[in-house]
């Protein structure tokens, strides 16, 4: 095996290595880091970002971007919380529609899926660049969240709903179970189904994909719909964990999620990357956040460090792909 082969092996596992080194360093620097409680803590905190970032990965693989995930998360969570708390009153008929727990969750997910579908429709039907279309959706969804919540948090959602965010199942937090299921399904879809293959083909060369008989529009709309749905999953998770739907929930989540995708080695120009890479990326960010808090680093410095890590990840990726 010559050097270039070592190099490409190394490149493949760069995220895992980075994560390992990071954990090693933190466990030496802080005795609070390597404890079971802290481990579950990190996984619970990361689980929301993992869900959103899985959707983001699919979008980025098609050479798109979704800036609206944070706002979609907020609106979906708020819709679910609002319905759970008060149901819908139709004053004209003196009718009251109450929602079960499952019902509110389903409506929340439908809300997110629909917003994602709308993104995809605008992008494919009117050829609006994804950056612009989802930027518009960001403010639209945020605006609707404010309208729906009238600017106040919706709190006190009851123990059943809170179980999602705080409960445990088979010794593992429910939030982590959700993220795990999302990841497993996404890995299968992206590697083992025609739909997943089409995502890579479109990102790699859209025009060749089209001439191969792939319905580009359908695939893209589905990808954005999935991204919206997963943002809604994140919305339910966040709302449940806080036992409250905050009108400004998910602010800036799109950036954490893009960071996870990029650190995980997915190319922003599409066609190259993986779900597992993104999971590692999200974990790196999660561990970093956690470690900096444990080490008592000021939150302002935390932001600086996070930014530098993103830059470093992209630079390493560039250097590696050049060597290839």
């Amino acid at each position: 095996m010559d050097i270039s082969q070592y190099r490409s092996k190394l490149a493949r596992f760069q995220s895992s290595i980075a994560l390992f080194v990071l954990c090693l360093a933190l466990s030496i620097l802080s005795d609070k880091f390597l404890t079971p409680e802290n481990g579950w803590n990190i996984l619970r905190q990361t689980s929301v970002n993992v869900c959103i970032s899985v959707g983001m990965t699919l979008v980025v693989l098609t050479a798109g971007i979704d800036l609206s995930v944070g706002a979609v998360l907020a609106l979906s969570g708020a819709v679910a919380a609002g319905l759970l708390k008060t149901g819908i009153e139709l004053p004209s008929n003196d009718l009251f529609v109450g929602f079960t727990l499952l019902g509110t969750i389903v409506v929340g997910l439908i809300t997110g899926s629909f917003l994602g579908f709308f993104n995809g429709w605008v992008i494919t039907r009117f050829k609006v660049p994804p950056f612009v279309a989802t930027l518009a959706m960001l403010t639209i969804a945020r605006g609707f969240t404010m309208l729906w919540t009238k600017g106040y948090p919706i709190s006190g959602l009851g123990p059943n709903f809170a179980f999602i965010g705080t409960g445990w199942f088979l010794g593992v937090p429910v939030l982590v179970w959700i993220a795990l299921i999302v990841v497993v399904v996404a890995v299968i879809i992206s590697n083992k189904t025609a739909f997943g293959r089409y995502i890579y083909a479109i990102g790699g060369n859209e025009s060749a994909a089209k001439l191969s008989g792939i319905d580009i529009g359908k695939v893209k709309v589905l990808v954005y719909t999935i991204a919206g749905a997963l943002a809604a999953v994140g919305g339910i998770m966040v709302t449940s964990r806080l036992d409250s739907a905050q009108p400004n929930a998910g602010m800036g989540y799109e950036l954490d999620s893009i960071a996870a995708v990029v650190i995980g080695g997915t190319s922003l120009s599409g066609g190259r990357g993986s779900i597992m890479g993104t999971v590692l990326g999200a974990l790196i960010i999660g561990v970093l956040n956690n470690g900096l808090v444990l080490l008592d680093v000021s939150p302002f410095w935390q932001q600086v460090v996070k930014g530098l890590v993103i830059l470093l990840a992209v630079i390493i990726d560039k250097v590696n792909s050049k060597a290839e």
Binding site: G204, A208, G271, R272
Partner: peptide, 12 residues
């Protein structure tokens, strides 16, 4: 430009 996804493998 139109025929191949160059970054993917032959079988794909």
């Amino acid at each position: 430009k139109d025929g191949l996804v160059l970054g993917l493998d032959v079988k794909t």
